[in-house]
Design a protein around this nucleic acid. Structure first.
Lengths: 229, 229
DNA sequence: TGAATAGTGTCTCTAAGACATTATTAT
DNA sequence: ATAATAATGTCTTAGAGACACTATTCA
């Protein structure tokens, strides 16, 4: 019994193996709200539903590299930095065959969001404070266990927003913009003086001395993340 | 190009696939310190090094079920509740072949720790506050990327110790024991009145009214986690 | 000068650290 | 009683929420 288990471990090539895929949760801000890149399925299973862009991991490809490839080939997003969220491996999560998927999160800054070219069968859906994915106010049905993946990704993002917020902003940003990102991700409003105090006392911001341009009234100072000191 | 990627996704059975394994980080308290169950490797690669108990995932087996099977077959631990930590998939993490592994954490209460029967080639190593795994004061070499797995598991455990601590204690425990668990995991001492206040105000503890027995001096009250209300 | 937003002063409240004190038990 | 630990009172400090106030810019 234990011997059998050992042999199984030592020579696994003779056994059926699950396929391993990645699914990408690409998030950015769109009109001040958290938005998510989706692909529509045009055949069963889950035909007509929306799904996360994904693909199988190559035999000589790391999971991160697979996520980068999927985002490049399917959404034209190059140079992104996927971060692992969780591995989903329920036996019946795909009705066709056994597929274990690793979920990756990618945060898109405003320049990438503005340059996003949505191909046929793709959309930008919004995520409301409760975690519901919808388009034009209509909740979307997501294929497979992708609603669980999105929900867990949102929870993780909220828990780490202090560090993650910068990836959703341009290089130079105002404290108001930083607060707006926190609020959009957390789904609630924050206290202004307390937020500014906390951010400035963390020591990861550096005021540039420059002011934002093109505003009708008093312009705010532009900050950058972590200067060098 | 995109068509090729699509076909690859749709019929992956024709492609080489990585093997998928689980590795288990089984943690408990031993003589007041955080301890870890390890297995020695008796052949290359990493012969003579210690490794986490692990095994391959069956084609009709969930990752959690695989982790439970590994712990049952290799360590006699039944009825545990593995929690996923992270998926490690670097292409060269195993020199023999491509293996993606999912790390699972299991917390053992004192009864399980006392009943642990170490088989040949197994040991209980301690984890010091810096995250170093050692035995009798000697740092141990861990096979593959298992030191990274242990380190990340420890970081995650520390971040969630408020909820996880109960799994390392018996059903009934004193506040002193609860604090000792927090301190062992966090690797630092905590302030007693503040700790007690915080725990009691969380509302997840319920005093039983019973006192611990067999102590030379004033016995402490026994608490349980979350009564029913 | 006024509108509108940037940025700050300050009060309050909550929670943690520190330290001393009281309470309880076995010997 | 005494030793030893359980449990608590209270002072101080740090940080967040609330709200009003001052500062700055453009039209």
């Amino acid at each position: 019994m234990e011997e059998a288990a050992f042999l199984r471990q030592y020579d696994p090539t003779g056994y059926d193996r699950p396929s391993v895929a990645v699914d990408c949760v690409a998030l950015g801000l769109w009109e001040g709200r958290l938005a998510l890149l989706l692909t529509s399925r045009d055949r069963p299973p889950f035909a007509g539903d929306w799904s996360l862009p994904g693909g199988f991991i190559g035999i000589a490809e790391s999971p991160e590299a697979a996520a980068e490839r999927v985002l490049r080939d399917k959404a034209g997003l190059a140079g992104v930095a996927p971060e692992q969220v969780h591995c989903f491996g329920a036996v019946d999560r795909d009705p066709r065959m056994r597929i274990i998927t690793i979920a990756y999160r990618v945060l898109l800054d405003p320049a990438r969001m503005a340059a996003l070219f949505l191909r046929a069968g793709q959309c930008l859906a919004t995520i409301d404070p409760a975690g519901t994915v919808s388009q034009d106010g209509q909740p979307l049905r997501l294929a497979f266990d992708h609603d669980r993946i999105v929900r867990l990704t949102l929870d993780r993002l909220r828990a780490t927003i202090d560090d993650a917020a910068f990836a959703l902003l341009p290089d130079r940003f105002t404290l108001r913009e930083l607060q707006a990102v926190h609020e959009a991700v957390l789904g609630r409003s924050l206290n202004k003086p307390a937020f500014r105090r906390r951010m400035l006392e963390r020591g990861v911001l550096h005021g540039t001395g420059d002011l934002e341009a093109g505003r009708a009234f008093r312009p705010a100072e532009l900050y950058v993340q972590r200067p060098k000191g």
